[in-house]
Computed example of a mutant assay.
Amino acid sequence: MTSSSKPLSTSIAIPQALPTLAGKVAIISGSCSGIGAAIAIELSSRGCNVVINYPSPSLQPQAVALSNSLITRAITVCADISSIEGPQTLVNEAVKEFGKVDILVNNAAIAINLPLEEQTMEHWDSLVNLNGRGTFLLTQAVLPHLSRKESRIVNIDSISSRAAPALQTIYAGTKGMVDSFTRCWAKELPPKYGCTVNAVSPGPTMTEGFAAAGEPFMKMMQPVLDQTPVGPRMAKPDEIAFAVGFLCEPRASWINGLNLTASGGLFID
């Protein structure tokens, strides 16, 4: 018997060179700056058409500049996700332009760092209405329009939801809501809508907001950053965006209910 020089056949699929999300449509709330903008760039680089959301008319030039920089089709939509009407407005404009939604990234959020005694009902309303209710309403609004084929919902959580840092009572609480939403929806929604539901939990990330906090704040943060195993620094927004992109890939179809922590090991659950 002679051995054959022909290679053994394999059933492993070889990734194609074509953009993996070509033809997909993604809504990213709060996406004209920071992590949201980085997610828009990441998904566009994978071939995805993008709906960029900004909350007020003053941010339109920033949103349009981002849209013009992308390599795929993109539209910009002014919609305040903390309002009752904003989430539905965002979805309506997306569907009007593209006819469907394949990916929803619930990114819009704000934070406040104050002692418990100094946190007010105004803080409560602004954080709960955007971080919690906004995520809830936007997800509800998008469900009838999901493509039902390899569709994805990705919630931007935070390590604060589980690490429970001081000075973040309301913020950590709202991100705890997002964490629980992810777990509930990962069980409830896939059988009905053919989607997966996951979360990405960033640690401290160098966004415009952090940069504007100034040098004194950064000095205060440094002891925390020094505890990060991968390196004593903040994350870059594109590092968080890559985690989101991974969960949106067609080949991530068996990943559901995951809270993917992207903190350089600062928090390990």
Rank of each mutant, 00 (worst) to 15 (best):
residue 5 S to A: 14
residue 7 P to K: 06
residue 7 P to G: 05
residue 9 S to W: 11
residue 9 S to T: 12
residue 10 T to A: 05
residue 11 S to E: 11
residue 12 I to D: 05
residue 14 I to T: 08
residue 17 A to K: 13
residue 18 L to Y: 03
residue 18 L to D: 08
residue 19 P to D: 05
residue 23 G to Y: 09
residue 25 V to H: 05
residue 26 A to E: 03
residue 27 I to F: 00
residue 28 I to S: 10
residue 30 G to S: 06
residue 32 C to A: 09
residue 32 C to P: 00
residue 33 S to G: 01
residue 34 G to I: 03
residue 37 A to H: 02
residue 37 A to Y: 09
residue 38 A to H: 08
residue 38 A to F: 11
residue 39 I to C: 06
residue 39 I to M: 06
residue 40 A to D: 12
residue 41 I to V: 10
residue 42 E to F: 05
residue 44 S to C: 01
residue 47 G to I: 01
residue 47 G to C: 01
residue 49 N to G: 03
residue 50 V to W: 03
residue 53 N to R: 03
residue 56 S to L: 09
residue 58 S to P: 08
residue 59 L to Y: 07
residue 59 L to H: 12
residue 62 Q to I: 03
residue 62 Q to L: 08
residue 62 Q to S: 13
residue 65 A to S: 15
residue 66 L to C: 01
residue 66 L to G: 00
residue 68 N to Q: 13
residue 69 S to T: 10
residue 69 S to H: 04
residue 70 L to N: 00
residue 71 I to E: 14
residue 72 T to M: 06
residue 74 A to L: 07
residue 75 I to H: 03
residue 75 I to L: 04
residue 76 T to N: 05
residue 78 C to M: 12
residue 79 A to S: 12
residue 81 I to R: 00
residue 83 S to T: 11
residue 85 E to M: 02
residue 87 P to M: 05
residue 89 T to G: 13
residue 89 T to E: 15
residue 92 N to A: 15
residue 92 N to D: 15
residue 93 E to I: 00
residue 94 A to Q: 04
residue 94 A to I: 01
residue 95 V to H: 05
residue 98 F to H: 10
residue 101 V to H: 11
residue 101 V to M: 09
residue 101 V to F: 10
residue 104 L to T: 02
residue 104 L to N: 03
residue 107 N to Y: 06
residue 108 A to R: 11
residue 113 N to Y: 14
residue 113 N to Q: 13
residue 118 E to W: 01
residue 119 Q to F: 02
residue 127 L to Y: 01
residue 128 V to F: 00
residue 129 N to D: 15
residue 135 T to P: 03
residue 140 Q to N: 15
residue 140 Q to C: 11
residue 142 V to C: 10
residue 143 L to I: 08
residue 144 P to T: 08
residue 151 S to I: 08
residue 151 S to V: 09
residue 153 I to S: 14
residue 155 N to Y: 08
residue 155 N to S: 02
residue 156 I to Y: 06
residue 156 I to M: 02
residue 157 D to C: 12
residue 157 D to Q: 13
residue 159 I to V: 15
residue 161 S to C: 07
residue 162 R to N: 14
residue 164 A to L: 15
residue 165 P to A: 01
residue 166 A to V: 14
residue 166 A to W: 08
residue 174 T to S: 00
residue 174 T to H: 00
residue 178 V to Q: 05
residue 179 D to R: 08
residue 180 S to I: 03
residue 180 S to F: 01
residue 187 K to H: 09
residue 191 P to K: 09
residue 191 P to S: 05
residue 194 G to R: 02
residue 196 T to E: 07
residue 196 T to W: 04
residue 198 N to C: 14
residue 199 A to C: 04
residue 203 G to W: 09
residue 204 P to F: 15
residue 207 T to R: 05
residue 210 F to H: 11
residue 210 F to S: 07
residue 211 A to E: 13
residue 216 P to K: 13
residue 216 P to T: 12
residue 219 K to R: 15
residue 224 V to Y: 12
residue 225 L to S: 07
residue 226 D to Q: 10
residue 226 D to C: 10
residue 227 Q to L: 13
residue 228 T to C: 15
residue 230 V to L: 15
residue 234 M to I: 04
residue 236 K to D: 14
residue 237 P to G: 08
residue 241 A to I: 03
residue 241 A to R: 04
residue 244 V to S: 10
residue 249 E to R: 14
residue 252 A to W: 02
residue 252 A to R: 09
residue 255 I to E: 06
residue 257 G to Q: 04
residue 258 L to K: 04
residue 262 A to S: 12
residue 263 S to N: 05
residue 265 G to S: 07
residue 266 L to A: 13
residue 268 I to A: 13
residue 268 I to H: 12
